[in-house]
């Protein structure tokens, strides 16, 4: 009796608090479907009186001749390139650190660890000046190229931890069979590291899709804007048009992240739990 009451209390509390947690998102979804005059007059209600799907159509049209299709494809292009670059470079580098012996390895590993904690603001200004002088401002290059040369120490570290867990006997067996370091990496380690690579790809996708500061600094041409910049322009009071459109596009911008999260939930949870603890 008391046990079932306690169980009921537990679930009631967790569900109530959970609703509170995702209430802001539910509110935005419902606002994105409300007729304009209802959004702030009935702010507390989660049910629109009529479903205003037109918000999505009108919002998608964007403004100033640039529609959200452009923003979404820009974001998609950047994100795909960054994910590919990150997977290639961080797996190579991680293998080097995890398995190979070379001079200054431990010193360079310390450098890697320190860059993980380095506030990005320290390199922000000189990097901007560098890319400006290279003529890379208003291109996708400053947002993508650094990821091909070991951009994120965090992902390298995650993969190092994973590679270290793969039994060395496998490398040795492949070596006896005539494999060199490159073929061991390509044929033995990479196939085994699939789960870790998936985790890296997911986090890289989420962070790049969400990135705001990078595009804000390097992209000024609306034709090159990512979804984050497009949304920000939408919410700017000076170019402001319509709340319903803005909420509709906000929800659309979150959709890819939601889908990735729901499909790869397990990888995300394990990725955070293991790297967090091993850090």
């Amino acid at each position: 009796m008391t046990l079932s009451i306690r169980r009921f209390a537990y679930h009631a509390f967790v569900i109530a608090f959970g609703v509170l947690m995702i209430y802001p998102i539910l509110w935005t979804i419902s606002s994105s479907l409300k007729p304009e005059n209802e959004i702030f007059t009935h702010a507390g209600s989660l049910l629109p009186s009529t479903f205003e799907w037109l918000n999505y159509v009108q919002g998608w049209a964007g403004f100033g001749g640039t529609n959200f299709g452009v923003f979404f494809s820009n974001s998609a292009i950047i994100t795909v390139i960054v994910v590919i670059g990150t997977l290639l470079s961080s797996s190579l580098v991680a293998y080097g650190f995890a398995r190979l012996q070379f001079w200054t390895r431990s010193f360079l590993f310390t450098c890697l660890m320190i860059t993980m904690m380095l506030p990005s603001q320290v390199t922000l200004v000189p990097q901007y000046i560098l890319f400006h002088n290279l003529g890379w401002v208003n291109t996708f290059l400053p947002l993508t190229v650094p990821h091909f040369i070991g951009g994120s120490p965090f992902f390298i570290f995650l993969l190092i931890q994973f590679f270290r867990g793969i039994p060395r006997e496998l490398d040795e067996a492949a070596f006896i069979d005539g494999c060199n370091a490159y073929s061991i990496f390509g044929r033995v380690i990479l196939p085994l590291a699939k789960p870790a690579l998936v985790t890296v790809a997911i986090f890289c996708f989420l962070w790049t899709w969400d990135d705001f500061l990078g595009p804000l600094i390097y992209l000024n041409n609306p034709k090159l804007f990512t979804v984050s910049l497009g949304l920000r322009m939408f919410s700017d009071p000076n170019s402001f048009s319509h709340w319903g459109y803005m909420f509709a596009m906000s929800i659309l911008s979150l959709l890819p992240e939601f889908i990735v999260f729901l499909v790869f939930q397990r990888n995300i949870v394990e990725g955070i739990a293991t790297t967090g603890l091993k850090g």
Partner: peptide
């Protein structure tokens, strides 16, 4: 869920 989307402009 809030942590997944927390940094976004939306």
């Amino acid at each position: 869920i809030p942590s997944i989307i927390g940094g976004s402009v939306a």
